[in-house]
Design a protein around this nucleic acid. Sequence first.
DNA 1: AATGAATGAGCCTTCATTCAT
DNA 2: TATGAATGAAGGCTCATTCAT
Lengths: 232, 232, 232, 232
Amino acid sequence: MARPPGHGAGYETKRQEIIDKAAALFAEKGYAATGIAEVGDAAGLARGALYYYIGSKEHLLVEIQDRVMRPMLAGVHRIAALDEDPVLRLRLLSQTLLENILARLDHVRVYEHDYRNLRGDNRTRLLSQRREFEGVVQQLLVAAMEDGSFRRLDPGLATLQFLNMHNHTYQWVKPGGEWDARSLSREYCATLFAGFAGPGRRFDDIEDHVSDFLAKRETAAPVPIPRSSGRA
Amino acid sequence: MARPPGHGAGYETKRQEIIDKAAALFAEKGYAATGIAEVGDAAGLARGALYYYIGSKEHLLVEIQDRVMRPMLAGVHRIAALDEDPVLRLRLLSQTLLENILARLDHVRVYEHDYRNLRGDNRTRLLSQRREFEGVVQQLLVAAMEDGSFRRLDPGLATLQFLNMHNHTYQWVKPGGEWDARSLSREYCATLFAGFAGPGRRFDDIEDHVSDFLAKRETAAPVPIPRSSGRA
Amino acid sequence: MARPPGHGAGYETKRQEIIDKAAALFAEKGYAATGIAEVGDAAGLARGALYYYIGSKEHLLVEIQDRVMRPMLAGVHRIAALDEDPVLRLRLLSQTLLENILARLDHVRVYEHDYRNLRGDNRTRLLSQRREFEGVVQQLLVAAMEDGSFRRLDPGLATLQFLNMHNHTYQWVKPGGEWDARSLSREYCATLFAGFAGPGRRFDDIEDHVSDFLAKRETAAPVPIPRSSGRA
Amino acid sequence: MARPPGHGAGYETKRQEIIDKAAALFAEKGYAATGIAEVGDAAGLARGALYYYIGSKEHLLVEIQDRVMRPMLAGVHRIAALDEDPVLRLRLLSQTLLENILARLDHVRVYEHDYRNLRGDNRTRLLSQRREFEGVVQQLLVAAMEDGSFRRLDPGLATLQFLNMHNHTYQWVKPGGEWDARSLSREYCATLFAGFAGPGRRFDDIEDHVSDFLAKRETAAPVPIPRSSGRA
DNA sequence: AATGAATGAGCCTTCATTCAT
DNA sequence: TATGAATGAAGGCTCATTCAT
């Protein structure tokens, strides 16, 4: 379980490579239906060597979940803390969410399908992270209701509608396909914000605000989405 | 392998019972992670007897998928064929969809998660049914755009937004919980229709139309949602 | 782990047969160095079928320990409770002990060598049984000291001397070889009792008392030592 | 495989240290159940470096057996060759035997339990050493019978009684515990010699003879029992 | 003198499935 | 109809050992 204390230069690189390969396989066939041997084959490693890196099959799953949840939570908290209009923050959060989904599509599929295979602490931690994530979204929605941007909705159900719309995307979107995160976010939010809008409210210039914000950000400090390989 | 040609009175009953139990287990732990022995235990049957009813583990999965897809498609086609406004038909379709999801929550979870374990024909047929289903939704959305109810949207993405919103519901809804199909449908459609609305269009009286329609239907011919046990 | 609730006529027989074979193999090569596959080969069973009977490798070890300890403790308690002179009871206990050792020589070897491979409850229970056993011997030795038969010895060390002498026998005795339980017991006790004797005490007629006692017993009720196969 | 021909200053020291650690681990968990990695951890050495010192796991076992048998045989032969009464020589041999057992308790446990894991020549040599050892004891016992000190006993069984009593000690004695070699030897021999005694023979002054002998020895030349680390 | 990385056989165990009864 | 018994492949994982550096 514990990795050997000293490991050479290439160790972590190789380790991340293995997790990549595993994520792809788990996404394709499901965690339970994928054998460790297949992961070894994909990584070009014999079974024994594999365990030198991974500890256990479940640990592999934990790392994949982490790769999804860690940057997602970080991004979401960063955006929620911005000094901007709640609706703009929701739009930015939507885009970050979709960027993360698109950047690690197979990881997300594993994250959504296979968390049932986690047990004990790992499972508990995952579920609490999900709740934390939902909490942030809900707070923004409530803020938007309170300032009149949105009509009075059941906060829980509004959150779930927002998340339904975004989180199911992984089921059909293709990497490098027709849709990128920004366009998707634009469309989703156009629907949701018009659907949630308070009386007399419209959000026609929201995309301009987004452009402004992103331009500001980019000149200040770029925030890259990490690629699938390499720790978040 | 094939079901024995002559079977007694209780055969089909017992068979359906077994599929029920299997669906519950597969939903909880995943298809691949659930053993045939567990199904046998849950059904109170030894392994040998189980195979007398089920043929194979994969066949069990096929039956569960069928139980989801068959009534879903039937309902959707029935509604699409109605001589009603496209927006009302979408609202009715939404409700049917949610009724089916809520009536067979565990089946739906299996349907969404485990179709990757199907192979060959079974898989092909399933995917084509999904496309068929999406086609119907898309046609209604296009019809609503054409009569000006909805603004001009990318038809594919509009469909996916509609389906995202509905199909992700199984991930959090609880049977016998806070939300029933009709309330959920009302809320989802309030958001989606306002979000999709063409210029100057509102759908404030849509729920009245729904009430009227349902009242008519009920006096004419009840269309029950079949319970989880028993063939569709 | 739990054996199936219903099993046929031959189940228990076959199970005992497997434990026999396992005991022989464990005795020869050691528990840890013996593979489950070897047990399967010896029992003429494929690996899968083996597990239908045994539950786990450790469970096999537990059963072997039980087969040693259960009749041993039963015999020892039965004899300690007799209304006879302490020295005679020690002599009878010695014989029972040796009878048990000789009757299940390979089991005893496993019992002495491999209990370290037990963990948790199984280990705890075993150790407490050992202490219980030693307690009975020590009480008899103390009784013999108190009535003057034996000189005043350190009770703990006297017990250990008695047990050293008997328990190491498994390391060299051969089943069906030169020595049977009664002769061995006679010789061991001749040495020990003369060695332990109080001033002026001799036990020249102890073997006559043994003969009398055994004759009495046999006419009353024979107490057979169970063979290696079959539960105690 | 063979030790490298040229090795530096600390090589042998480190090698002995590794064998020490291995003996402790083998004693605790058994040879077969102990991994080479654990030995490496205990010695603070990576697996590769370990093999630089040990050659193979079985070689480690051979060395441990040697550390037990070599000084044991040497001591026993030295004592048997003394020009003293056979009974005194047996008493001295008993003490040496127990000193060796106590000095290397874990080695002895390995020696008694795990010789079955040796194969080929290593095993043969070990067994012949054991027979050699028993032969010496038996000769002394026979000598004591022939001079009338002991009664006429079956020589083989007398030897085995002597060895049973001593060799089982490792199973319960604790290093630094209540009993040291000299006290144990005194008690064991008190029992055995009185038990073996010929008609009218007593050995009341044997401990005085022991004291005399040891005093003589010590002034002449100390014969230290080597500590667990360091070759015999 | 020591290391990290790799191997591949073997470990115990579980699995879906079959079949005589 | 239903069972208990059996199979053999595959499951995840550990092992002693090697070797380039």
